[in-house]
Simulated scan of single mutants.
Amino acid sequence: MFKRKLSALDYGKDYNPQDETQFRQMAVWLEDMKIRLYPIDGRQSLRDIQNPQWHETFSKYLQDLKFPYNNEMINDRIALSDWLMGTAIRFEYGDNVEKYKPISSNIINNQQKSNSVNQTGNPLEAIDYTSEEFKSGMVKLCELLQIPTKFNDTTAVLRAVSKIITTKLSKEAIDKNQIKEQGSGVDFSIEQMPLGFDTGDKIINEAAKILRLLYIQDLRTLQTKINETIVSVQSFVADPRTDSKLGQIGW
């Protein structure tokens, strides 16, 4: 989820936001190398990640950074990681404007050339994902689908929206739910069910029919799980991460 931002910041370590030690190390590294809010001698308490009082120190650090969210968000390591990385990137760009200005100009020129050549191309290319109109529409869509909206990574949110729609709101998913609902209330008499053989005892015959029904039910349950597994694997294999701006498709 954070691979691109950490790569842009030259953070050369693996990162798992749910690992508290890795989170603290990343936060300290961003302060030391990119943000530099405090003077060097004022970072000692923040660097002491084993200190039992580190959480209070970090909360004070976020206040000094003008962290814009409420206190509950301080415990959300994923949202905090996203915000800290975005802040670090902003500071990095501010410190090296002349360095990144040619890159920004080239990107804009390439986009303009692409738009002029591909007037009838993918309509998604024309969307301004940073506009307030897009963000407002995304928030409403996420609220409708009950998807968290606290992340700044619009790519991840769009993937989540796509997953919800394809797995729960597609025609195939709706038809599957309807079949389950319709198939849950079948009424029939066990005497009408053919056994295929006769033991000569009515009670034993009925017991055999019941065992046969249970066996058939187990087979259907197993087949359903197999089908669901196949669909999940196909969905995973057929969902490469695409960055249309970079012209890359793949993992």
Rank of each mutant, 00 (worst) to 15 (best):
F58N: 01
Q178F: 10
E72C: 01
E20L: 13
D239M: 05
E133N: 12
E191P: 04
K176N: 15
T199W: 03
N16K: 09
T221K: 15
T149E: 03
K180I: 13
Q192A: 13
G94W: 14
Q217V: 06
T154I: 11
Q50K: 14
A238C: 09
N106D: 13
T166V: 06
Y215P: 00
L62S: 02
L246P: 02
T149S: 10
K245M: 09
S136R: 09
T87P: 00
D198F: 07
I89R: 01
G200P: 04
T242V: 15
I127R: 03
N110V: 00
Y100A: 05
I74L: 14
Q223I: 13
L37R: 07
D10C: 07
N51D: 11
D175E: 14
N106R: 11
S116F: 05
M73F: 07
N96H: 15
Q182S: 08
N109G: 06
G185Q: 11
T130E: 11
Q22H: 06
T154Y: 07
T57L: 08
N227T: 03
P39S: 03
T221D: 11
R43E: 06
I230L: 14
V28E: 12
N16R: 07
K99C: 00
A173R: 03
R159S: 06
G94Y: 15
W251K: 08
R77F: 09
D95M: 07
E172V: 07
V161S: 03
T120S: 10
T167D: 03
V28P: 00
S244D: 12
G12D: 10
P68H: 06
I249S: 04
L222D: 07
G250R: 13
G183M: 02
Q146F: 04
K66H: 12
L30R: 02
G185I: 06
P68F: 04
Y61C: 10
Y15S: 00
C142G: 04
K163A: 09
E143S: 03
H55Q: 11
Q50E: 13
K180D: 15
Q50V: 00
L246V: 12
E181A: 15
